[in-house]
């Protein structure tokens, strides 16, 4: 079932006795569990009627035993079993021995007063297994997969609203670009930024730029972007920030090379009439970076890209043979980037 529908149904107090949660977006599944908890349990009785187990440490029969117990004082009990790896094709690790039969029996006759949730962080369950087949029949299956592009932006906007702040499309986009697509991180960043702008404030691109924490990959990407636009002040800013976080200059160098090489590949293949999809399969990489690279292609001449690669290869050699300090080498590259990119011939 779609994750948003299940939220709606729980909201309307339409609660099932059995839930199976899977999918790698654990932020959403955790949120669902929290939501469910608020609906099912009285806060004061939480201590008695809520039990959370890690199925890597506790065998399933113990969990079932807990599930078969009647609630104390309140109306319902909520039993959660995390890391239900026995629902997947993965090999069992660790010393826990699960007696699946106990679960099989329980699935067929669940207790009215208990809500049992099994959760596992994988995209696909092993549907050949008997227990999975039974769960599909008797329990509510909810998939929490990572959100796609358009969903993500609207998710960000909904989140911001919940935090009492507005966010425009550009800012949401920039946030997605700088932080990435991991919902938990996005949530943390949004909460932080919303605090910064204060109640009913608006989150703008500037604020995002100032506050959002960047990841290395994203930083390199925006570094290349800045170099492309010849916006050296920001490029150097990012570069120095990276260094201050003790990033290794050689890592930065190799990531730069990778970016420029990808752009060159895409440029050449595009000029031969390949589509972006074909390029991605030809190069054996994900289509998304190809799409991003394709946007940049027009900014470069092929010779310029070759120059950059040749220059960086030479710098790599010079660094590794101790002829130049690695930091200085990269600084020089950035300061000369314009000249190298526009150069007709080799600049070595």
């Amino acid at each position: 079932m779609d994750s948003r529908n299940v939220f709606k149904r729980v909201q309307q107090n339409d609660i099932d006795p059995l839930y199976t949660l899977y999918g790698s977006e654990t932020f959403l599944s955790e949120e669902f569990i929290r939501f469910l908890k608020g609906k099912v349990l009285d806060q004061e009785l939480e201590e008695f009627n809520l039990h959370i187990f890690d199925l890597n440490e506790t065998p399933i029969q113990d969990v079932i035993q807990e599930a078969e117990t009647l609630p104390f004082m309140g109306e319902k009990r909520l039993i959660i079993g995390k890391n239900a790896m026995f629902l997947t094709g993965a090999k069992q690790t660790g010393g826990v021995e699960h007696h699946i039969d106990a679960l099989l029996n329980y699935i067929q006759q669940p207790l009215e007063t208990t809500v049992l949730v099994l959760a596992v962080e994988v995209e696909k369950l092993d549907e050949r297994k008997k227990v999975v087949k039974l769960l599909q029949k008797h329990s509510t299956m909810v998939a929490f997969s990572p959100l796609k592009e358009p969903e993500l932006i609207s998710w960000i906007q909904r989140r911001a609203q919940k935090l009492n702040a507005g966010i425009d499309d550009q800012a949401a986009n920039l946030l997605k670009q700088t932080v990435g697509t991991d919902l938990r991180t996005l949530h943390q960043e949004l909460e932080k930024i919303a605090s910064y702008v204060g109640a009913r404030g608006t989150i703008t691109e500037d604020v995002v730029y100032q506050l959002a924490s960047r990841t290395l990959e994203q930083d390199i990407f925006s570094l290349v972007e800045r170099v492309v636009k010849l916006d050296m002040t920001r490029a150097m800013r990012i570069f120095y920030d990276l260094l201050k976080n003790k990033e290794e200059p050689l890592t930065i160098l190799s990531l730069l090379v990778r970016q420029f090489r990808l752009i060159l590949h895409v440029k050449i293949l595009l000029s031969k009439g390949y589509t972006q999809g074909q390029i991605a399969s030809q190069l054996g990489i994900h289509p998304y970076p190809v799409k991003l690279a394709a946007e940049k292609v027009k900014n470069f001449s092929e010779q310029g890209l070759r120059n950059v690669l040749a220059y960086l290869a030479e710098e790599d050699y010079r660094i590794k043979s101790g002829k130049i300090d690695k930091k200085l080498s990269l600084e020089l590259f950035m300061m000369r980037a314009e000249e190298i990119l526009k150069g007709e011939k080799k600049v070595l």
């Binding site: 924490s213 003790k246 990033e247």
Partner: peptide, 22 residues
Amino acid sequence: TTEPHRLPATIISRCQRFDFRS
């Protein structure tokens, strides 16, 4: 910490992160 990249991603994503500038 001075070296955030040495933390596991699972830890980082559980925290609200602030980048102190020099």
